[in-house]
């Protein structure tokens, strides 16, 4: 790791994760969430030292922890009070609802991509095929790499707007409370 030690990276990550979680799940839940993420990084990934590996790993753990918290709240009925007897038994296989949700998001993404322009579609396709930005610059014959960066930024904004402002499917039903809304027990 050049310039940053593992401890420095984790310290910076803690601040960023806490701030992010506070904006999404509230202050108290945010501190717990941040602590859980750092515990996983410390206990399960002590050999990961690189910045370029630690940061994406932290994003993945953070996302999973946030999803677990959502499921826990749903199970506890903090959003909708349900009888425990009505709750389904745990299935060790993949969650069909998650699969359906995944298919729905992909369909939504495809529909959004179809509405993009030719260049944006081509750019997104090249990115999915694994081309790097310098390689895409050569394919398009652009004079500068910044041209490709600018095109990609505009295309990403258009796609995000077409996806409703977020990549994640809405985890809650229409009658459910927003995730950052604290429930009063």
């Amino acid at each position: 790791m050049v310039g940053f030690t593992r401890e420095e990276v984790l310290q910076q990550l803690r601040e960023r994760i806490l701030a992010f979680a506070t904006s999404r799940v509230g202050r108290e839940s945010a501190e717990d969430l941040t602590q859980e993420v750092l515990m996983v990084l410390h206990e399960k990934y002590p050999r990961v030292l690189s910045l370029t590996e630690l940061v994406p790993l932290a994003f993945q753990i953070l996302r999973f922890k946030m999803l677990d918290r959502h499921r826990k709240l749903l199970r506890r009925g903090e959003y909708n009070q349900e009888s425990v007897d009505d709750a389904p038994l745990v299935d060790p296989s993949e969650d069909p609802s998650e699969e359906a949700e995944q298919r729905e998001r992909v369909t939504q993404l495809i529909e959004a991509l179809q509405q993009l322009g030719e260049r944006c579609q081509h750019l997104f396709r090249l990115k999915l095929e694994g081309y790097t930005f310098p390689e895409i610059k050569g394919i398009f014959g652009a004079g500068s790499i910044n041209t490709i960066y600018t095109w990609d930024l505009r295309c990403r904004k258009q796609l995000l707007a077409l996806m409703g402002g977020q990549w994640e499917a809405k985890p809650f039903k229409s009658d459910a409370q927003p995730p950052n809304q604290e429930t009063v027990s």
């Binding site: 990276v9 960023r16 992010f20 910045l51 990115k127 930005f133 990609d152 930024l153």
Partner: peptide, 28 residues
């Protein structure tokens, strides 16, 4: 911001990733 779009598709080079993640440590 210009290279943010390459993160999801994993098309960033090593230098671009380092530059992006270093910036992310100090930019909320």
């Amino acid at each position: 911001e210009q290279i943010l779009g390459g993160y999801a598709t994993d098309t960033l080079t090593a230098a671009e990733k380092r530059k992006l993640f270093e910036a992310a440590l100090y930019d909320q």
